[in-house]
């Protein structure tokens, strides 16, 4: 099938400005490999360098150092060859202010050899309700959906979506996720940037966490979140329980604490055995553990671990 990855970035460096005003690089030695046919999320806080990275892949920016290959092509020198094969949704804009949604989509379709059926796409993304309203008067959500439709209408092999759900309500967000999953089902490679860890967790097959212009961790959401220390089991019970006997039954290195009055947290590698140990101890002590829950480490915790900062900060 494919002899090389959909996107291969090695040691990418990109600075804005001139030599005289040599600021911190926006992208600073970034490595990323994107597999074909999967959804890859580039996750990171604002200013991390996500847009710069994506736009270098799209051929908008020339790397200051490092190499970028997209579908085996150099995005700058082989741009004409690359463009018909990719779909692009910019972080914002991209549409004539005076254009209506459906005519803009129809026009974009005309630039491609085998476009999708525009009417079906309009129905799918609910763009019919935009009617004769021109782009600048559409709601933010409608503008986002139009840009998304324009990115996929040409039946690309590879789609770049730069924060496609920013500012969307939960329902519209899920509709976008569904479309992205349909793209994967039909073999399209999707790269999506986001600063929402739940989006990366729920949508992506692979996640690359970017901070200050570098990829600081990469893997499937499960791989990234694995790593016992942060996994926890929590439950509510009578306040002031003596946790000493429980601790003796738990594996080496586990902790059990009363985090708030009547709220307990057991930190350990959460597996069925741990659950059995804790509930067994509860049963022996005559306690009904209420609101018993397994708490998984989230990507947010991963980011916090790696950088000491909150992803949302």
């Amino acid at each position: 099938m494919h002899s090389e990855p959909a996107v291969q970035i090695a040691g990418l460096v990109k600075r804005y400005g001139t030599a005289f005003n040599n600021r911190v690089p926006a992208v600073d030695g970034l490595d990323l490999t994107v597999a074909h046919g999967a959804i890859t999320a580039v996750l990171g806080p604002n200013g991390a360098g996500k847009t710069t990275t994506i736009e270098t892949c799209e051929g908008y920016r020339r790397p200051d150092a490092g190499t970028v290959r997209v579908l085996g092509l150099d995005p700058v020198t082989q741009n004409a060859e690359l463009r018909p094969r990719i779909g692009v949704m910019l972080q914002s804009g991209g549409v004539y202010a005076g254009a209506r949604a459906v005519e803009m989509l129809r026009h974009t379709a005309k630039l491609h050899a085998h476009p999708l059926d525009v009417d079906a796409l309009v129905e799918r993304l609910g763009l019919g309700s935009c009617g004769r309203t021109t782009y600048r008067r559409l709601s933010g959500g409608q503008q986002q959906r139009l840009a998304l439709a324009m990115a996929v209408v040409g039946r690309p092999e590879l789609v770049f979506l730069d924060e496609p759900t920013a500012g969307l309500d939960p329902q519209a967000r899920r509709a976008t996720w569904e479309l992205v999953r349909d793209l994967r089902r039909d073999g399209v490679t999707v790269i999506v940037t986001t600063h929402h860890m739940d989006e990366a967790e729920q949508l992506a097959d692979h996640v690359a966490i970017v901070d200050r212009g570098k990829v600081i961790a990469t893997g499937t959401p499960e791989e990234l979140c694995r790593g016992g220390a942060e996994d926890a089991l929590r439950f509510d019970g009578p306040p002031g329980l003596d946790l000493g006997p429980l601790l003796k039954e738990l594996p080496e290195g586990a902790t059990a604490t009363e985090t708030a009055t009547g709220s307990y947290r057991v930190e350990a590698t959460v597996d069925p055995q741990l659950l059995a140990t804790v509930t067994g101890w509860c049963a022996a002590s005559g306690i009904l553990p209420e609101r018993l829950a397994v708490q998984r480490r989230s990507l947010e915790d991963v980011f916090l671990d790696l950088t000491g900062r909150d992803l949302r900060s």
Partner: peptide
């Protein structure tokens, strides 16, 4: 359901 399978090309 729409078929999104890739069929890229410039007009």
């Amino acid at each position: 359901t729409t078929d999104y399978s890739p069929k890229p090309g410039a007009a």
